[in-house]
Simulated scan of single mutants.
Amino acid sequence: MTATPSTATAWVTRSGSQLQLAGKPWRFAGVNMYWLGLDENVTDAAGPTYPTHAAVDNGFSAARSLGAGLVRSISLGVSVGSPRSLEPTLGHFNDAAFASIDYAVADARRYGVRLMIPLTDEWHYYHGGKHTFTNWLGYPDAPGQNCVTDAGQRQREAEFYTDPRIVAAFHAYVAHLLNHVNPYTGLRLGSDPTIAIWETGNEVWDAPTAWTEQTAAYIKSLAPHALVADGSAATGKAISETAYAAPHVDLIDAHFYPTSVATMTSDARFTAAHGKAYMVGEFPLTTQTDSSWTTALATDRDVAGGLAWSLFPWLSATQPEQHDDGYTFHYPGANATERSAVTRLQAYAKQVAGTN
């Protein structure tokens, strides 16, 4: 299944608290596939590997079969600090890393799926994040610690938002990424409507509003037609504490572990009242036992969409790629739990499509 020419080249836009595509209301169901740029689950002697074209094709084919309109992928935008990263060391770029990024973006376009791409990360995952920049520029990591486990680490990483050297280094990274021309499409990544949403970061829960606005404005300078999501929301953080009022922010992205219909509903109303769009960028699918959560997502017109965590490919006809966080699923399902989850996600996608 592929996009029609009119929607493939059209930008997703925002009118107040609602999203539109080709002049019509646009709401979505979707999935997270964080591994599209660099995959920690398939390794060799050098560490995480670039996903194969077959794995990427399998992922996007599955996403479309699930009815996904949007795929969120952290490693397409966060790729720093390791040998196969886009920026392995400060100021030195490894443009070989663009090969997997470019292919994934082109594949999403081919399957008619929009992308959401975060640009940094709160956590100390394999693809790097804000701590990579602070570590590079004079604020060394405390071994084995992160912002939650160690107050000193939290203080050091706070410099990511204010130290002019770090801000400049991060902007240089963002510019290198968004100004890159994809050889498959001939488009700058910042000029490709396939990438509907750039997100300031993944769960950067301590981000000051001033930094979020500065970052959103910078993204808009490089991708003026794309939407920008505030990535400072995280489980347990109230939407009222995020940068909903930042002028260049279009969407508020909330994450739910566990899910809460009451909180989601309240957050969506609050965000809409402030003239911005609201979405659920992560929710666990395999731990849901009924469809009450996805039904609530589908029927609430103040929720632009929800993205399940997380879809993985089949590496062969009998070998589903494994991940150890407890939320992994495959299409059409590697076991009874996954098959039930897939059925609920497909039903959600059909409900959302019926509201557009």
Rank of each mutant, 00 (worst) to 15 (best):
A172S: 14
T49V: 10
Q214M: 11
T194N: 12
A273G: 15
H255K: 04
W198I: 03
R72A: 05
V105I: 15
L297F: 15
G77N: 08
Q322C: 02
A175V: 09
V56C: 01
A96L: 07
A172N: 13
V352C: 02
E241N: 12
R339M: 09
V174K: 00
A243C: 14
A210W: 08
A62S: 15
D324W: 12
A104K: 02
D300N: 15
T4K: 11
N94G: 03
V280A: 14
A45S: 14
D302T: 09
G69R: 10
Y184S: 12
L137S: 04
G326W: 06
Q322G: 10
M33I: 13
W314Q: 01
Y139M: 05
T13A: 08
G112M: 05
R165C: 07
E241Y: 12
Y139Q: 06
E321W: 02
Q18T: 14
G152I: 06
R109C: 03
T337R: 14
H171T: 10
S310D: 13
P193M: 03
A341S: 14
A268D: 09
R109Q: 14
V148P: 02
R188I: 05
G37I: 05
L36S: 02
E321K: 11
D206A: 11
P208W: 00
F170S: 03
S191M: 09
R109F: 04
H171V: 04
R156M: 08
A8D: 14
R64Q: 13
S340F: 12
Y50V: 00
R72Q: 13
E338F: 05
D192C: 08
F160C: 06
P313E: 05
K130R: 15
L178F: 11
Y103A: 01
Y103P: 00
N182K: 00
P247S: 07
M1R: 12
D230A: 11
T343L: 08
S260Y: 09
M264T: 13
W11V: 03
W293G: 00
D192R: 04
L38M: 10
A108H: 11
L177T: 01
G152W: 09
S191G: 15
S73M: 08
Q351V: 02
T328K: 03
P83Q: 09
S232L: 07
N179D: 14
G354T: 07
A106W: 05
P88R: 10
M33Y: 13
A168G: 07
F329Y: 15
A216F: 06
L189I: 12
Y103L: 01
L177I: 01
Y184E: 11
D44A: 07
M116W: 06
V105E: 06
A238T: 09
T194E: 09
E321L: 14
V78G: 03
L66D: 03
S79H: 08
S75E: 03
E213Q: 15
D39Y: 06
C147H: 07
E122G: 13
Q346D: 05
F160G: 03
V181Y: 01
S240K: 11
A96V: 02
N146T: 05
S82E: 11
K276Q: 06
F329C: 03
R27K: 12
V80L: 04
T134M: 09
N335W: 09
I219S: 03
Y331D: 06
D267L: 06
E213R: 13
T43H: 07
K276R: 15
G81D: 03
G306Q: 00
V352W: 00
Q145L: 06
G190E: 01
T132E: 01
G275I: 01
S221D: 11
T9A: 13
Y139K: 04
V204F: 07
G59H: 00
